[in-house]
Design a protein around this nucleic acid. Sequence first.
DNA 1: TGTTCCCACG
Length: 584
Amino acid sequence: MEIKQPLSYPYSPAFHALLRAGLHLKLLQQVHAHLIVSGYGRNRALLTKLIKQVCAARSIEYTRRLFLVTPDPDSFLFNSIIKATSKFHFSLDSVLFYRRMIISLIRPSDYTFTSVIKACADLSVLTLGRGIHTHVLVCGYGLNIYVQSSLVAFYAKSGDLDIARKVFDRMPSRSLVAWNSMISGYEQNGLAKEAFELFEQMWKMGVEPDSPTFVSLLSACAQMGALGLGCWVHEHVVKNGFDMNVVLGTSLINMYARCGDVEKAREVFDSMSELNVVTWTAMISGYGTNGYGTEAVELFGQMRILGPSPNSVTFVAVLSACAHGGLVDEGRWVFASMSDEYGLVPGMEHHVCMVDMLGRAGLLSEAYQFIRELVPGSPAPAVWTALLGACKMHKNFVLGVEVAEHLLSVDPENPGHYVMLSNIYALAGRMDRVEMVRNIMFRRCLKKQVGYSTIEVNQKTYMFSMGDKSHPESNEIYQYLDDLMWRCREAGYVALPDSVMHEVEEEERDHALRYHSEKLAIAFGLMKTSHAVAIRIVKNLRICEDCHSAIKYISVVANREIIVRDKLRFHHFKDGVCSCLDYW
DNA sequence: TGTTCCCACG
């Protein structure tokens, strides 16, 4: 007969000692020592509880050690450790413990699967997850709603939306979590429109959304720059009395900021009762991308005093705000404070920001020196790309050609580098070289990204690409645009000469230049909206110099505020002036 | 005992 171990929850003193130790590693180690001394060092139940807490205390090494000293791990121990490691993002360990469980011939349960599949989702490992999906079916959990939801999330996060949707569609009953997983899956893969379509379906079926639903929808609005829809979501959240938690509030800030309405973003920021690092970072970044560099740095200053410790994303936001705002001195001390005050190690992205900042300000040799002296190892292509952009901006051909050639040698598959080199030659008037670079690009079958612009009218988003005639009112739009450009020319607009027409990641230069997607979208917006509302355009690439100049004139002749979000930042055009002050 | 949601660069 087996003698019961002297642990019987909740009466055992050892168990109480564990509870008291909480999440402090030191205390947990003391309890472990105590267990050993008092003869419970191999008590599986106590060790299981201890393992969960050690894992929650974020010590993966100690978690692994404890597992190794536990005799005959049972299914309870395996489930606990797989769940704990998955929950605290030690995803690889989670998968490895799962593997060990299978090898030990212990049958996984539905609880095992939800945890290990979540770990696979964190790792985005498709092949591994597919294998575990097979285990799920073999073990007979194919219809378990929790397992199915985690599979939907896993496939969506790993980028296989078709399979995610298949699993989702085959669910006999869909939980709200399953809906949320699928909606956020679309949004995270850049399919904002599909996210909204699925939400509509859910809405029509009478399923009540919750705050994760709204968070995903707000991200989708931010992605599309759809302010109207975003406001609708905000109103709905307020009307239905949802409590404004940090995540939801941060999503709202992000949505308003990325739709170009910084004031509203700040309003939400000020109204929040709890602010975390992500919230502060979202607001700082919102200021930066909208051209309010000073405000971004100021808010960062407040964060240092009142807020949580900034993380490395915060520094990217502040430094890029400094770069776009020409705030070189501020950027220098912010960068220094990163390691001096917060003990953070600057990464590649921070170096990119610094080179970008120095380069934009015309301090090319300092930028070059920064790369040589302060960037450890061999600098990533992105760092050189930043310098190259600055060379073109300040027309430094010698350095520009040198950097571009270096980039082509280390990163020959990137069409952006070829385009940049060709542009630099064009600026120098070396049209023979321009032709040569273009030919190489052609031979290697490298293509530039296709550009497009979107605009929201009456909560519907319309997309335009260059020379696009797919819109049913195409003729009217072109007519309107021609008319508009004629009025701009009357007011003094002159199209830029050919040699400076094609820039990095901008739309193809040809006779259809006049019909760049942003111009089409603006014409459509002017036709369809009333005078009081601003025109808001979202572009996937950078705005070109000619369009930038043209839009300034359009803002005057059409007497309209026009806000363009390009790949990097916002341009607020009003009365013939752009908020970027031609510094972008 | 579970599955879903927030910030940056390029």
